[in-house]
């Protein structure tokens, strides 16, 4: 039987204490052991970006991390982006309004990547957005709706900040 370790990790604000197999990837741990299936696996070799999560606030590919490495860390996945069950995050709303998704499989990685990006670059240009998501493959949209959504989200976030 494979070696296991006990870990404690906070995901979307909830603390989990779990016994994990040391060879399990973080993505598999979240998806299979915790049932957090919002994070998707598209390639498992670090190219497609669908499995992107925020690890201590920084984007990372969860197929390229071991679950055991998450011990003591904080993770945000797509399930934790919306402020409440009833309300979506401005970025999610912008995706909906700009047709930033079709099949929705790349979407979790796009959202987490852009969440970090817009935090660091609140007023980006189109080219900056394109570079920011260049590590995330999408086969449906030709990226145009996603780029539009990111630029729109930047405006929404700015407006929300000014209003508060």
């Amino acid at each position: 039987m494979s070696e296991t370790r006990k870990i404690a990790v906070t995901i979307n604000g909830k603390r989990y204490e779990e016994e994990v197999e040391v060879r399990w990837t973080l993505a598999d741990f979240m998806r299979q052991q915790l049932g957090l299936t919002g994070t998707h696996l598209g390639c498992e070799h670090g190219v497609c970006g669908a499995c992107t999560i925020l690890f201590d606030g920084y984007s990372a590919r969860s197929c390229l991390m071991l679950a055991v490495q998450a011990d003591g860390h904080e993770i945000l996945t797509v399930e934790g982006i919306a402020p409440s069950e009833e309300q979506m995050h401005p970025l999610q709303e912008a995706f909906r309004d700009n047709h930033g998704l079709q099949c929705g499989f790349c979407t979790p990685g796009m959202l987490t990547t852009l969440l970090e990006f817009l935090r660091d670059n609140p007023d980006p240009t189109e080219q900056e957005v394109r570079i920011a998501i260049s590590g995330n493959l999408c086969r449906c949209t030709g990226y145009q709706g996603i780029v539009a959504a990111a630029l729109d989200a930047a405006q929404r976030l700015k407006a929300a900040k000014e209003a508060s």
Partner: peptide, 9 residues
Amino acid sequence: VGHRQTRNR
């Protein structure tokens, strides 16, 4: 070097 997600790690 790669992308934001890979440079972070």
